[in-house]
Design a protein around this nucleic acid. Structure first.
Lengths: 186, 186
DNA sequence: AATAAAGTGGACATGCTGTCCACTTAAACA
DNA sequence: TGTTTAAGTGGACAGCATGTCCACTTTATT
């Protein structure tokens, strides 16, 4: 079990990291900087979090858990009950909201391929895959990655910042993807 | 214009870089290593290529040019003439082939957001966007990014290496995306 | 052959990373 | 309450990659 000082420092680190990540682009944040801001030593920081990504992942964890809970037991169309295509659209909308609210964090944690190794990504893949299976779509395994790819933080940030797209526009585009489930056109 | 020794060194650098990149994962390749392999000094390398990405981009350039040429003036369905949905499918198939053949290079050059800043990405966006416009799809600007997202090198590498998917399966999944163009279902 | 400009290479300063270990603190037990 | 012990701490340290800088070399021009 965790000692009192360890718990205190964990809280300090997370609070400081949240602060620092919101101040500047994630790739410019150094481990040393987080340690300084948290008022702990370098070794203390590395003890729990081996790199930047793991810190941001920890910060994102609670937000993701809320969404995961809604997907499993929330109301339709996000939760069970609605047709697959509608559930997928609701999932996309919820993800856009999450990406918008925590853009800097998401960008910090999920650089490149490390994104795929997070628990959250696995959960989302399982969820979307089950929707594909429910819709009786062929090749669910390949298609699920394709459908999740536009939710990559880099893609979202690029659309927002460089392309000047709004969350609503992005959501609308993603919603069109649900056409692959068959949906109303067949 | 370029001096003789400069041209010679450029060739050396590109040849050596191609060799090194094929030997090991791109993120483990150091600038110093490429310089050593090319038999040039550190400063010579940095003079032309400020970072790893720009080297890999230079290497990819010719391969991309071939595809770009086919898109503009090649035979249908890759080139002009075929319906938008079919051209998009052909583009996806060609991209999968390119990604498969030069996976290590693509991975090396297009880490995260730098991917979007390459000339090739701009070309592809223009191309796909014109297909969307030809198909009279709403919100082409947002949709084009969504449709290009699954072609991110990280996504492709993950599908191939971690998920064990074959190029054929990936192509099949991408082909299903062309449903958003309307195509035969309406 | 002389000159100027472009090009070269490696030494250097800088900054980040991750490890290591002597010290401190908290919890358990007498 | 004092003692023990193991977890936890922090900062020094070595290693490594980066990017710059400048004295020197090579090429092209006259």
């Amino acid at each position: 079990m965790e000692r009192a000082d360890a718990a205190r420092n964990r809280a300090r680190i997370l609070a400081a990291a949240a602060e620092v990540f919101s101040t500047k682009p994630a790739h410019e944040v150094t481990m040393d900087e987080i340690a300084k801001a948290a008022g702990v030593g370098r070794g203390t920081l590395y003890r729990r979090y081996p790199d930047r990504a793991s810190i941001a992942v920890a910060l994102l964890d609670e937000h993701e858990r809320v969404l995961q809970e809604s997907l499993m037991r929330g109301e339709a169309p996000l939760g069970p009950g609605a047709p697959p295509a509608e559930r997928l659209a609701a999932f996309y909308a919820a993800m856009v909201e999450l990406l918008e609210n925590h853009r800097h964090l998401v960008l910090g944690s999920e650089v490149g391929r490390s994104r795929f190794e997070t628990g959250a990504y696995g959960f989302w893949r399982t969820h979307v895959r089950s929707l594909l299976v429910a819709a009786a779509v062929a090749e669910p395994d390949a298609l699920v990655e394709v459908l999740l790819a536009p939710l990559a933080p880099e893609v979202y940030a690029y659309q927002r910042e460089d392309r000047g797209l709004t969350p609503a526009e992005i959501t609308a585009a993603l919603t069109r993807l649900t056409a692959v489930l068959g949906g109303r056109c067949r």
